[in-house]
Every structure is written in structure tokens, then in C-alpha cells.
Design a protein around this nucleic acid. Structure first.
Lengths: 150, 150
DNA sequence: CCGGATCCCCAGAGATACTG
DNA sequence: CAGTATCTCTGGGGATCCGG
């Protein structure tokens, strides 16, 4: 592999310059020989960009407060186990708040934290964008083969 | 589950109103009893928000053009098999361009498409945000238990 | 040699059943 | 109701092979 530092890299156009500067500011750790202890993408971002986490955040954004089984019904297809796991992780990292009411039967409510709402805004930008791009993507998939969701 | 349409939902504050309107505009398909054929999040967005896809997009954004093994070295930890898979999917959906030069030894170069650059911008917003939030998240994890990357 | 394809293996995700 | 427990099985890693 040729050694290309970001500085030496030839830049194609202004958009390229902007993007690369932005990336450079974000990542001091692009060197694979010197990986950071915790990678922002691998270890912090990616754990909450799976489909279930995204859907959880969005539905809590719509309904403000949801109980466990309400969430489960909204997010069709998710299993109890996976929902529990995702909620635990989202709580651990501060996206989600869990309130337990020791009634009979027990009641547990989930809400977004302030930080969770920040993430929701990010996700809405993403989903807005993917919605506008979706028709083209579907066309490409049809040309490529069939629908192939995965 | 109580039947809560977005309209009936009591709204807490202005931020809430804005977010919910945005969501409502994006999703006509929030009804779990009437799931769409193709879910924008499950089937279109989520397949490219895994850690490897994000890293591929970002590195192609930094270096403009990368060969297969260059990419593999930059994205430490990825296997050939997974890299191949992700690249195929990213190509299929129009994020990535593949150029093959039938030299000896063979040379294959990958680049972002225009659409790929659009996605890169989205991802940079996300990573910028996660970078600013990372210190707090790490603190929360320490309190919670240990570092727990996953 | 490069860019994969193939095969085997295992951790982790998901389906189902069950419990405090 | 809100989860666990159990089982299954797929997706991803590692090693090897291969066509150009």
C-alpha cells in the first residue's frame, strides 16, 4: 500500500476538500497501525445504528412514553429477547430512560433522554434522506436481480 | 395497547411538535398491522449502517480511490469475506463504484458514487456528533460496569 | 502476487416457551 | 406484564484455494 497521509492526498474538487478536512478533524486515529482503544464508530456509534435501535428511538420519539409490550407491538418482528437487549444497551449509553412501577401487574415505561432526543434528530435526517433516495435504490436492486431486501 | 394516533398524541413541548411532524411526514407506515412491503429502515437504511459499511464509506471519502487490499488494511479487523460482501451490497445499492483493470496482477479500484458522497455527508454529521458525545458515554459505561465496548 | 471464492467453525441473533 | 431460559441457526471470522 502506498503511504498516503491525508495531507499528501491529491484532492479532486472543493467538495472533496471540505469533506476531507471534516474527516481529518474528526479522526486523529485513521492509522490502522495505531488503532485507538475505543473506536468511535466500531464501539460507540455502530452499536446503536442497527435496525432495532433505530426503530426504538424513533417510536419513543413519536409516542414519548411506551411500555415494553407497546414498543414490541409497534416494532413488528422484534423478539422479546432482542428488545430487552437493545433497551439495556440504549439505557446504559444514556439514550433511554427506564421507569418501573411496582404495581400488579408490573408496569415499565421507556422514554428518551435529552441525549436520546439529540440522537433522534440525527436519525430523522438520515431517514428523511433515505426516504428520498429509496425509489432509486429499489430500481437499482430490480435491475441488479430481484428485490433482495438484505 | 392504547390506540394512539399521532394526531391524538398529547405533545409535551415545541421540540416534540417539530419532531413528531417530521416523523409523520416521513412515515406513512407506522402501523404495525399494515407493514409496508419494503421498510425504509429495516430494508434500505440499516443494511448500510453497520460498522464495516460506515468505515468503507468514510475511507473511500478520505482517499477517493482505494484498492481492495488497501481498504482492508485501513479498516483493521475486517475479513476479506466480509469486505467483499459489504462492497457488493454497497455497489448494488449505488453507493460505490468498482473499476477493474485486467492487468497482471489484477487491479480493482473502488470509489464513491455521487450518491455515496451524499451518504458520506450524512455519516460525517453522525460521526461528528458521536465524537462530541463519546466522553460522556464512556463515563456512563464506566459507572455502569466496565468499559463494555459492545 | 491480487482479489476474491470456498469451506469450516463459532459467537451472537432470533423464535419459542416459560416464569416471578 | 415484563422479561428470562432454552434452543436453533445464521452471519461473520479464519484459513485455504484459485483464476488471472
Amino acid at each position: 500500500m502506498e503511504k498516503l497521509s491525508i495531507e499528501e492526498e491529491t484532492v479532486v474538487d472543493n467538495q472533496g476538500i471540505d469533506l476531507k478536512k471534516k474527516i481529518k478533524n474528526i479522526f486523529g486515529h485513521l492509522d490502522p497501525n495505531n488503532p485507538p482503544d475505543i473506536c468511535p464508530i466500531r464501539d460507540v456509534l455502530a452499536p446503536v445504528t442497527d435496525k432495532w435501535s433505530i426503530l426504538i428511538i424513533i417510536f419513543l420519539g413519536v409516542y414519548t412514553t411506551l411500555r415494553f409490550n407497546e414498543l414490541k407491538r409497534h416494532i413488528y418482528g422484534i423478539s422479546s429477547k432482542t428488545l430487552t437487549e437493545r433497551l439495556k444497551l440504549l439505557k446504559r449509553d444514556g439514550y433511554v430512560l427506564r421507569k418501573m412501577y411496582p404495581e400488579v401487574p408490573i408496569r415499565v415505561e421507556y422514554q428518551l433522554t435529552k441525549f436520546g432526543y439529540q440522537y433522534l434528530e440525527q436519525l430523522l435526517n438520515l431517514t428523511e434522506w433515505i426516504n428520498s433516495a429509496m425509489p432509486d435504490i429499489i430500481k437499482k436492486r430490480h435491475k441488479f436481480n430481484v428485490i433482495i431486501k438484505k
